[in-house]
Design a protein around this nucleic acid. Structure first.
Length: 240
DNA sequence: CGCCAGGTGGGAT
DNA sequence: ATCCCACATGGC
């Protein structure tokens, strides 16, 4: 039995080698600018620069919009929000929920998500007035209706640079098959495991999450396609 | 047609 | 604690 930190690092290395830099989180406003591809993914790490408040908010809105939703549908809604100049806490406070729902229609669950975006914007008004400790940012977010652990950690990781491992459904599926755990762990259990086994590094966690999404979509699907899987050598599922 | 997608909250057991 | 369901669009 291989040591867990070793297995998690090797998995990362193999995924990184197979798929390369993912450049998450995509920023619609930076799409096509130097260092970013047409979708807003970072392709040249040298070109990365600090996030503006509005970009942080865009990431947070996108994190809600993509809940159980294909990113392309969520992305259209982000574009629509930007076009309507709704990526601001004031605009989201003032807009009617029904109007907002129509703007984000393409993301699905639009009535629920309209409500979520308005509530999230309220919490941002309070969070962005500095001096908030990292330990409390997460609990503030988790108190917001519509923000669960994955959404909170995505916002904290990609918008605020806090190193939280995102232990989403893909991570749980891939890691269970690879052999990180025997049974399917809960979100909090897997996150704690990863926090213990890996260095608390925001770049590592950001890329790891993106790579797991990519890998779960291409090979480690619900019905896996093990042919050509980059994890084949180390995966207990493929060898069983 | 059915299934899935970068979840979450609410209610029943 | 743990299941079960509603929420909804768009691509394949």
């Amino acid at each position: 039995m291989r040591l867990l930190p070793d297995l998690l690092r090797t998995t990362y290395r193999l995924l990184e080698h197979a798929y390369g830099l993912q450049g998450w989180w995509p920023l619609v406003g930076r799409a096509g600018t130097p260092g970013y591809d047409p979708e807003g993914y970072l392709v040249d790490p040298e070109a990365a620069r600090p996030l503006a408040d509005e970009e942080r908010l865009e990431i947070a809105l996108g994190a809600v919009l993509t809940q159980n939703t294909a990113w392309e549908n969520a992305r259209r809604a982000v574009v629509a929000l930007r076009d309507g100049e709704f990526v601001s806490t004031e605009a989201l406070r003032d807009v009617e929920s029904d109007k907002l729902a129509r703007v984000i229609r393409s993301s699905g669950y639009f009535n629920q998500k309209a409500r979520k975006l308005k509530l999230l914007a309220r919490s941002f008004e309070r969070m962005d007035v500095g001096g908030m400790a990292e330990t409390s940012r997460r609990s503030v977010l988790l108190e917001v209706w519509g923000v669960g652990p994955e959404t909170a950690d995505s916002i904290l990781l990609y918008a605020y640079g806090e190193p939280h491992f995102i232990a989403d459904a893909y991570a749980r599926r891939v890691f269970r098959r690879v052999g990180v755990a025997q049974r399917e762990l809960s979100y909090d259990e897997l996150q704690a495991t990863c926090h213990q086994a890996l260095p608390r590094d925001r770049e590592l966690y950001g890329e790891y999450h993106a790579l797991l999404v990519r890998h779960a979509r291409t090979h480690c699907r619900k019905t896996p396609i093990c042919e050509g899987c980059p994890l084949r050598r180390i995966c207990s599922y493929a060898r069983s």
